[in-house]
């Protein structure tokens, strides 16, 4: 009974469940590191005729220089080394590389959102676009981004466009899609009575758009933006993979896999996911504050 009560207290807050979940993930991670790194270690033990116990195997598998799966504390050490200890301007600083990735992701996100809204307005207001555009938009997303990213970078490069813009284009390519889908639905969300109401005031098309359709689409826009902003980071990283890019988390991933530095790869991956999660929560905050200003229930 007492144990039950304590469990209830722990699980009722938001901290308790998170701590428990994270602990479970870390435990599984450590176990996984032993499992994945063991075959290499056991080979070595046998070659050198070393007797080994399970505890020795665990300790060794958590402290290898180039493990198949590095253990959490190795990744944490790598993160500390590349985020805190290096100067931000250093080529080895993850803060520097995050900045490179983030700037192209944000440019791509902005362009993608703009393009998405533009296309959705076209689709909602021009019947011909409604019929013709949507299949192409869907087709665009069935092409693997990994296949098209190098081509975009190379084609734009041959046109003399280099640097931030080609990378941002890949993010744009991924971002605009959820925005189009969400905004088309959002702009069409006002019910027929509200459209009739505007009609009864002999409202102009522009008035119906700004006073009815745009405000009604805001909740849909934010749902789309949350997906789009996470995709913008994916797009920026993918764009950095083939380009032989000098900077960016994608470049770090690439050099990590060249040199078998799994610690580096995992540190870069975790940094990328923390950035994505932070961006999504920033959008969530903006959504809540705008909802509040619009008097909507959340």
């Amino acid at each position: 009974m007492e144990a039950n009560r304590i469990l209830n207290i722990i699980m009722s807050g938001s901290v308790g469940p998170v701590v428990i979940l994270v602990s479970i993930i870390i435990m599984v991670w450590y176990a996984g590191a032993v499992y994945l790194n063991s075959s290499f270690l056991i080979d070595r033990y046998e070659k050198n005729n070393i007797d080994w116990s399970l505890s020795e195997l665990a300790t060794d598998s958590w402290s290898m220089e180039r493990p198949v799966l590095p253990s959490p504390h190795q990744v944490a050490k790598e993160l500390k080394k590349t985020i805190w200890d290096k100067k931000i301007t250093s080529k080895h600083s993850l803060v520097f590389h995050s900045g490179v990735t983030l700037s192209s992701a944000m440019l791509g996100f902005a362009m993608g959102t703009f393009l998405g809204i533009l296309l959705s307005v076209g689709i909602v207001y021009v019947p011909a676009l409604d019929r013709t555009l949507m299949p192409w938009i869907i087709a665009s997303q069935t092409i693997p981004i990994l296949a098209i990213a190098p081509m975009i970078v190379v084609v734009l490069g041959s046109m003399g466009i280099v640097g931030l813009f080609p990378k941002a284009t890949i993010s744009t390519y991924l971002c605009f899609f959820p925005v189009v889908v969400g905004m088309v639905k959002g702009l069409r969300s006002p019910n027929i009575i509200l459209v009739d109401l505007m009609h009864s005031y002999s409202a102009s098309k522009a008035q119906v758009f700004w006073k009815l359709r745009i405000p009604a689409s805001i909740p849909f826009l934010f749902a789309s933006l949350k997906i789009a902003i996470a995709l913008s980071i994916v797009g920026a990283i993918v764009a950095e993979l083939p380009a032989g890019a000098q900077g960016g988390l994608g470049a770090r991933l690439l050099s990590g896999s060249y040199y078998g530095q799994t610690n580096l790869i995992w540190a870069a991956l975790i940094t990328a996911s923390v950035i994505s999660a932070t961006l999504v929560s920033v959008i969530g905050r903006m959504e809540r504050s705008i909802n509040k200003r619009m008097g909507l229930q959340t």
Partner: peptide, 16 residues
């Protein structure tokens, strides 16, 4: 000319 005001079956107020 906005000669009439129309009241619908539902209040049709803009929620925002």
């Amino acid at each position: 000319d906005r000669s009439y005001g129309y009241v619908f079956q539902t209040p049709a107020l803009l929620p925002w």
